[in-house]
């Protein structure tokens, strides 16, 4: 990042691109899900009103922070600029996407992968952790989202 953009970024507020979907703890962020207090099913995004488990008529949910690490189920990238409401940088920079399986919640969650990681760097089963990063910037704010990042132990010395 150039000093100029650093300076510009410094004046901007950081705000979640999706309000209430993740904690804003920069070092140990978590996705915010919830859990049916009758059957224990997890939800992300959070369930409202009714439990979707057909065998459960629960209507009360407790917020939970989901596991912030999981294993790669599959992965891809976006080489073409997605249509709005995606907000693309000029010029568009392709990004990697991973589907990551959370063991405790038994749930697969999609997310962009941090810049610099290509599909060729990923394998099914690889351990990933959740980080916060910029989704897009506009004149007033830096809009933050969750992204997946390979955990350090995956990197083999070359």
């Amino acid at each position: 990042m150039s000093e100029e953009t650093n300076a510009a970024a410094g004046t901007k507020t950081r705000q979640p691109a999706l309000e209430g979907w993740f904690t804003l703890n920069q070092d140990q962020p978590h996705l915010i899900g919830n859990q049916c207090n009758r059957c224990g099913t997890y939800y992300f995004p959070r369930a409202r009103h009714f439990c979707k488990n057909p065998a459960c008529d629960g209507e009360q949910f407790d917020d939970v922070e989901l596991s912030r690490t999981g294993r790669v189920w599959s992965f891809t990238n976006a080489e073409y600029q997605p249509p709005p409401p995606y907000v693309a940088a000029e010029p568009f920079v392709p990004f990697t996407i991973a589907a990551v399986e959370l063991a405790k919640e038994k749930m697969i969650v999609l997310g962009q992968v941090v810049a610099g990681v290509n599909p060729s760097d990923l394998k099914a089963g690889m351990e990933m952790e959740l980080v916060l990063d910029t989704l897009f910037e506009d004149d007033s704010a830096e809009h933050i989202t969750w992204k997946w990042k390979p955990v350090a132990s995956n990197h083999h010395e070359s």
């Binding site: 691109a17 999706l18 309000e19 995004p45 189920w73 599959s74 992965f75 891809t76 990238n77 976006a78 073409y80 997605p82 249509p83 709005p84 409401p85 995606y86 907000v87 990004f95 996407i97 589907a99 999609l110 997310g111 962009q112 599909p119 394998k123 099914a124 989704l135 989202t145």
Partner: peptide
């Protein structure tokens, strides 16, 4: 933001993303 279809496009996840995840899963 209450519409999952809006959310995934906001995050840059298009229809080909899903097809590609299934394809890559077969490869893996």
């Amino acid at each position: 933001p209450d519409d999952p279809d809006w959310v995934r496009f906001r995050l840059g996840i298009t229809n080909p993303t899903y097809f590609a995840l299934y394809a890559r899963r077969r490869m893996e």
